[in-house]
Computed example of a mutant assay.
Amino acid sequence: MMYSRIVGTGSYLPEKILTNHDLERMVDTSDEWIRTRTGIAERRIAADNQMASDLALNASREAMEAAGVTAADIDLIIVATTTPDVIFPSTACILQDKLGAKGCPVFDVQAVCSGFIYALATADMFIRAGKCRTALVVGTEIYSRILDWTDRTTCVLFGDGAGAVILTRSDQPGVLSSHLHADGSHSKILAVPGSICGGKVQGTPFVTMEGNTVFKFAIKVLEEVVYEALAENNLQVSDIDWLIPHQANIRIIVSTARKLGISMEKVVVTLDRQGNTSAASIPLALDAAVRDGRIKSGQHVLLEGVGGGFTWGSVLIRW
């Protein structure tokens, strides 16, 4: 049987750090208010001349180096992003050109904060179907450009960054299963309800959110999608070695872990230093845990995310 395995991870964070104390001078908030409600202390902000593809390029090169592959080896690129460089071409096409990877299929996935889960699941299916051998999967975001910096309920939450993985074909299990869901009836709860018509923006080009509704929905579906993955693979909660959730809010992460009966010692958290980086948050956290040695061969790693749409999903991996 054919499987896909992650053989390299990489990440990139912009140089500029925006702390909670910096935000105190920009909007009516405080370090204590942000920390207690979100768990965030600082986030990264892309430079004016950086695009999502630039962040993705740095993360991709790091993942490729870790995997020992070159651009010539890559035969599929999937980029998860809510903040593409331009309307079109896709950010994946732009990244492909910057990497010098010629001819392979490339495309973007737009599932907001669940984007990396969707992209990873799609790449796994390509490999299992025998359609490619080596895939580059990237989550990259520049949320700082779609935030209203006078709205303290949203501008304190998000940051910029990119994470990437290299997937290759294997006869040994790696990605065990993926589980994807969506419910468009909740599309207005978390959105950027703007569009372009005649060269002008119509609607609101900034993130809008019903915080309490998002919180309740996220905890519910994140718990469900974990149990779905475990049932598919005849595993118990105790079999999970590492839970890597989307880094949205520490209260959501802690509440989900508590409902599942998972110790926070087995949960990877990067939220405090990076904020919510949407589609980039899961690969960024994964890379951090791989590089510091927490994740070891043979362990079960469960990735889970929920985002605007609403979309949600999980991917269970045997490392």
Rank of each mutant, 00 (worst) to 15 (best):
R145N: 06
V165M: 11
F217K: 05
Y143I: 10
T140Q: 05
L235S: 01
L147E: 01
R128Q: 15
V221A: 09
T154F: 13
G130A: 13
T154P: 02
E141P: 10
E228Y: 07
G198P: 02
C132Y: 02
E224M: 02
L136T: 03
L176A: 03
G130K: 09
L180C: 00
I219E: 04
G198N: 07
L190K: 01
R152V: 06
S170K: 07
I146S: 09
T153D: 07
R152A: 04
R145I: 05
D148F: 09
G199T: 07
E210T: 13
E228T: 08
L190Q: 05
V221I: 14
K216W: 07
Y143E: 09
K131M: 15
S144W: 03
D160K: 14
V221D: 09
I146Q: 09
L230H: 06
I166Y: 03
T150M: 08
T150K: 12
K131S: 13
T168Q: 15
I146H: 06
A182L: 12
D183C: 06
T134Y: 04
Y227T: 06
K188T: 15
D151G: 07
G198Q: 04
F217D: 09
W149G: 14
G203P: 01
V207Y: 08
L167R: 04
V192M: 09
I196D: 07
R169L: 13
C155D: 01
T153A: 06
G184H: 07
E228C: 06
P173R: 04
L235N: 02
I146D: 06
S238H: 01
T204Y: 13
K188E: 15
N234E: 15
F215I: 01
C155Q: 01
A182Q: 09
K200H: 14
F158I: 03
I196V: 15
K216H: 15
A231P: 00
S238K: 05
F158A: 01
V137A: 06
L167G: 02
M209R: 08
V192E: 05
D151S: 13
E210L: 13
G159Q: 00
V221K: 14
V192K: 04
A218Y: 11
R128Y: 12
N233Y: 05
Q202K: 10
A229R: 00
G174F: 02
L190G: 01
I189M: 14
Q236P: 00
M209S: 15
D183N: 10
L167W: 12
L147D: 03
Y227A: 03
G139P: 00
E232I: 03
F217N: 10
K200D: 12
C155E: 01
D160E: 14
S144I: 07
I142H: 07
R145Y: 00
V138K: 04
D171A: 14
I189N: 09
T168H: 12
G159E: 00
F217V: 10
R128W: 13
S170I: 00
A218F: 13
T134A: 05
G163V: 11
C132Q: 10
I142D: 11
D151F: 12
D171M: 11
L176W: 08
N212I: 12
Q172V: 15
F215Q: 04
F215W: 12
D160F: 13
V225E: 00
E141I: 14
L136W: 08
V226Q: 03
G184N: 02
R152K: 12
S238R: 04
V226W: 01
